[in-house]
């Protein structure tokens, strides 16, 4: 039997559906990033030089500030642009993932259209601001 399919143009694009899909994918991407941080840290010697709390801090935000107070003797491998990119990606995906969750709460529990619109804009601005501050700190620390 020939499979029935509907093309992308026929289905149409909707921002809400895109965000719904993005939220699912961003969660998976965050798992992949955390795994990258964990494996990377273990390769760089975390098994003997870090305790679990420091390791977890690094896994979820691979920033050198989480390594400075550990027993790691050489910080050079932990400060490369690659880890800054991973940390920036984490900030972007985590914040935009949370943004969609917050928007869902606003849509479900606020019935006043003007309040809903105002809060949507506020949340969007807040998200952009948080991503900017987060990425700025990662690249300048």
């Amino acid at each position: 039997m020939k499979p029935r399919t509907v093309s992308f143009t026929q289905r149409g694009f909707d921002f809400e559906t895109f965000m719904w899909f993005f939220t699912r994918v961003s969660a998976l991407v965050m798992y992949a990033l955390a795994l990258t941080g964990l494996v990377g840290a273990l390769i760089m010697g975390a098994r003997t030089q870090m305790n679990l709390a420091d390791l977890m801090r690094w896994v979820f935000t691979p920033n050198v500030t989480h390594v400075q107070n550990t027993n790691v003797p050489d910080l050079a491998p932990w400060t490369t642009s690659f880890w800054k990119l991973v940390a920036s990606a984490f900030v972007f995906f985590a914040t935009s993932h949370g943004l969609h969750g917050l928007l869902s709460v606003i849509e479900d529990y606020l019935t006043l259209p003007w309040l809903r619109r105002t809060l949507r804009i506020l949340v969007l601005l807040l998200t952009l601001f948080m991503i900017f501050v987060g990425v700025y700190l990662i690249w300048t620390s």
Binding site: R4, V6, S7, Q10, R11, G12, F13, D14, F15, E16, T17, M19, W20, S104, E107, D108
Partner: peptide, 24 residues
């Protein structure tokens, strides 16, 4: 329903702002 020919139109409707993406 494989006998029906309006699946694309219906998918477009459930894809709208107040469509399936609002299901949590």
């Amino acid at each position: 329903d494989d006998r029906d020919q309006a699946a694309a139109e219906r998918l477009k409707i459930v894809n709208e702002v107040m469509g399936v993406s609002r299901c949590h």
